[in-house]
Write a protein that binds this DNA or RNA. Structure first.
Ligand SMILES: [Mn+2]
Ligand SMILES: [Mn+2]
Ligand SMILES: [Zn+2]
Ligand SMILES: [Zn+2]
Lengths: 142, 142
DNA sequence: TCTTAAATGCGACTATGTTGCAAAAATAAA
DNA sequence: TTTATTTTTGCAACATAGTCGCATTTAAGA
């Protein structure tokens, strides 16, 4: 299915109105393989929405599970498309942060380890964050 | 050895001057079992330092390895004492975040899993973050 | 076309964090 | 003890991230 079509369905299925901005925002998420910050979005979106509009779209997409938070080095919120189109239960996955370009990637195929309760702490979920160099930054030596 | 004594040695060994504020800040870190944010510190410290003074002390302690960053739910910087007094190499360890009180704890005894390189990503370090309920928050039901 | 609920823009606001510079305090040297 | 050097501190100004209320606009349904 074409991306454009998928985006319109995604908005329909979640009862979100098809405004130019929200369509363009989803296109941006589909185009990028890494997590996007508010600033990334502000700089990339053509129709120049107010910053509040961006924050509110991100909130809405989060609530509907269309996007999810990804970790970031500098304490900034980043988001990426939630890929599990079929899964009802949230598919927990690892994330990779490149120490060179600071991009964050979802690693859907890496196994999250099981940890048993420790010292009175009741563990509900586990986050695994890998750091290193992404493929783009590995190519150039030194 | 008494905490007071340990603090003075810690400052001496790292060439940091023994000001009232920095001593009090280290006392605060010794007293707390969980990570502290700038705001936590501002509210707890008696001698009411300027916010910049706090940020700079944290920077200095970080550089010397006296404290380290711990994760936080709301993208705020949090810090905790680095415990490995003997170890030269940085002892990598897991962290636990309580979803109820939002405190972060260092879990020195939990094994960090080994992950092999995946799809061109070169992995240098691994962070493991556990979420759930801490012992304080588990006690009270519901 | 008309209605209504969602989405947007604007202004004001809070919180976190940084930088430059001058004054104060801690340590080392005399 | 006094002096000199280097840290540490406080202040002001700034930068960026994020939130809230309210009036206006717009998408979608009747
Ligand atoms: Mn992800
Ligand atoms: Mn820790
Ligand atoms: Zn990279
Ligand atoms: Zn708790």
């Amino acid at each position: 299915m074409k991306t454009e079509q998928k985006i319109l369905e995604l908005l329909s299925n979640n009862g979100i109105r098809k405004t130019n901005f929200r369509i363009e925002l989803l296109e941006l998420f589909y185009k990028n393989k890494h997590g996007l910050s508010h600033r990334d979005i502000k700089e990339a979106i053509e129709c120049m929405p107010d910053k509040v509009t961006i924050y509110r779209a991100l909130d809405t997409f989060m609530e509907k599970g269309i996007i999810h938070k990804v970790p970031d080095i500098n304490n900034v919120s980043r988001y990426a498309l939630t890929k599990h189109e079929c899964a009802e239960t949230h598919h927990n996955h690892a994330h990779f942060i490149c120490n060179s370009c600071h991009k964050t990637f979802c690693m859907d195929d890496i196994q999250i380890p099981e940890i048993q309760n420790a010292h009175g702490f009741k563990i509900n979920s586990i986050k695994l964050i890998l750091e290193g160099k992404c493929s783009d930054c590995s190519e150039c030596s030194h």
